[in-house]
Amino acid sequence: MTAVGTERRVIRVVVNGVPYEREVEARLLLSDFLRHELGLTGTHVGCEHGVCGACTVLFDGEPVRSCLFLAVQADGHAIETVEGLAPSESELHPLQLAFWEKHGLQCGYCTPGMLMVLKAFLAEHPNPTEEEIREAISGNLCRCTGYQNIVEAALSAAQLMRQS
């Protein structure tokens, strides 16, 4: 059999509703693809071994680690990043509003991952308890906030989203 597979591939992905077509190396991580090929640097990289959660994005609506994901695997799929969270240039998503209001961020580095995992979680659990929120974000490390205000923000966002 001749060599199977390729080291490069053309992929088509839709990111935040925008279609992209790029030729990429098979080994290129999705995190690097989003950040350095598409310039969507809102997705952060903290460990590249799937623990810190800073690189969390939504893949077909579900939260995944973009550092544990090859860009070629996203071919034909839809990705959502923090840049796609706000409904418009002038408005913020309820999660963003709540994080701002409750001081749910300090250095802001873990924040995009927190927002993305919470977006998916709240869609499935619109009325969560504090404990459920803590568990939902337990795969996202924050070194600044001690989590308390992130939890407050998530509870507040859930309430905002239920009201709207």
């Binding site: 059999m1 060599a3 199977v4 098979a26 080994r27 991580l29 690097d32 070629v72 695997q73 071919d75």
Partner: peptide, 25 residues
């Protein structure tokens, strides 16, 4: 912490996957 080079193959069926695996296990 970037992966080393490799080739990537996305089979369309289990049969294809098994065929390649049999050759290149």
């Amino acid at each position: 912490m970037k992966p080393p080079r490799f080739r990537y193959y996305a089979p369309h069926s289990l049969e294809e996957a098994l065929a390649v695996l049999a050759e290149m296990a």
